[in-house]
Computed example of a mutant assay.
Amino acid sequence: MMDMKKQIADGQGFVAALDQSGGSTPKALRGYGVEDSEWSGDDEMFAKIHEMRSRIITSPSFSNGKVIGAILFEKTMDGQVEGKPTPQALIDRGIVPFIKIDKGLEDEANGVQMMKPMPELDTLLARAKSLGVFGTKERSVINEANPEGIAAIVAQQFEVGRQVLAAGLVPMLEPEYNIKAEGRAEGEKILKAEILKNLESIDEQVMLKLSIPVEANLYADLIAHPKVLAVVALSGGYSTDEACAELAKNKGMIASFSRGLLQDLRAGQSDAEFDKTLGDAIDQIHAASVA
């Protein structure tokens, strides 16, 4: 039986982000080579993206030990892969399942975009727990070095995180810092200070998903913090090569890439081509994560 907590804590690999949701799904499908004309309506769209995700999960290179976790979209969690619930299909391959729980972003205020309300969260958390899911992921976005905005966004992340912990799951808090934002180096120092402050208010471990910082190893004391199980990095719009080069400068921070993992996969590839392309991306991201 896999010790999921130990696997994430040891960090000898990376977390795959397979959680593009409604708004970003058509874009993800187009990138994969599935045109808008090939589906009609949400059900067909989600069926197409589930086919893509199933193909990734069942690809031999995905379970070679270098992918230690995977973040799922709610519909993917509720779907099946090879006749099993998706989380169980991941667990059987030695991969820790996570679920994306946020419902998207509010309009920008104070230089940040907070998470929209999640009235059904307790129900979703109970369902996720029953399916064997280990943790959750929730994203909000910072667009400028506004101390008030950053304090609010981190407070909201921890508030939701406490709700997740109460449901017996491990929250992955994702206050993403827009990599194109001006003054990011200064803003990331504010972000780190707010996270350290909020860590004092919890008794259990959380995970953090952060943009790769401007200043290498800025987050070293978060990585070493006893209340932080792991710090993972988002690719945030970087290409695979750029994201891996930046990540490798940060000791102890591991990848949780979406675009960086999937950018060269195409629907028209043969299974052998698909697996080789995926395997090459996995090798590159793994090397940057354990560098």
Rank of each mutant, 00 (worst) to 15 (best):
V96R: 01
G23I: 01
V96S: 04
A28T: 11
L72E: 07
L18D: 05
L90R: 09
S140R: 04
T25G: 03
Q7D: 07
L18S: 09
G104R: 09
P87D: 00
V34G: 01
V133L: 03
P60Q: 08
S21R: 15
G69V: 12
K27E: 13
S63F: 02
F62G: 08
V96T: 12
S63N: 08
I91N: 02
G104A: 04
I95N: 00
P119T: 08
K66T: 10
D19W: 00
G111Y: 07
A9V: 07
W39N: 01
V15M: 15
M77V: 03
S37L: 09
T123H: 14
W39G: 01
G33V: 01
L18Q: 03
L72I: 07
S130E: 07
G69I: 11
D10Y: 11
T25W: 04
V96K: 00
I68W: 01
D107L: 10
A47N: 12
K103Q: 14
L18V: 03
T123N: 13
K6V: 11
D102W: 05
M45R: 01
R127L: 06
S61F: 10
Q88D: 11
G65F: 04
P119F: 05
D92Y: 09
A9Y: 07
Y32I: 03
G94V: 11
L105S: 11
M2R: 10
N64D: 14
E106Y: 08
D92I: 03
A28E: 10
L121Q: 10
V141C: 05
M115C: 14
L72M: 15
G79V: 01
I57T: 03
E74Q: 11
G13C: 06
I142H: 05
P85Y: 00
I101D: 10
L121G: 05
D3R: 10
S59M: 07
D19K: 00
T136V: 03
V141R: 07
D3L: 13
M52A: 09
P87E: 02
Y32G: 07
E74R: 08
L125M: 12
H50L: 10
Q80R: 13
Q12S: 14
M1T: 15
M118W: 06
T86E: 00
T58K: 13
I142L: 10
K6H: 13
G132T: 04
K75W: 03
A9W: 03
A109R: 12
V15G: 06
E44G: 10
L72W: 06
G22Q: 11
L72A: 10
K84L: 12
F73P: 01
M118N: 13
K48I: 06
V67T: 07
E108N: 04
M115H: 04
Q80K: 13
D107M: 10
A17E: 06
P26T: 02
I49L: 12
T86L: 04
I68C: 03
I91C: 06
K5M: 12
Y32C: 06
L90S: 03
G65I: 00
E106G: 00
M2Q: 13
P60G: 11
I101N: 10
M114P: 09
K5W: 06
I68H: 01
E51L: 01
T86V: 14
R139A: 14
V34Q: 02
G94S: 09
L29N: 12
H50E: 09
T58W: 05
S21E: 14
E82C: 14
L131S: 07
S140L: 03
M4Q: 15
L18F: 08
D78E: 15
G31Y: 07
L18I: 03
K103Y: 13
G111Q: 12
D10Q: 15
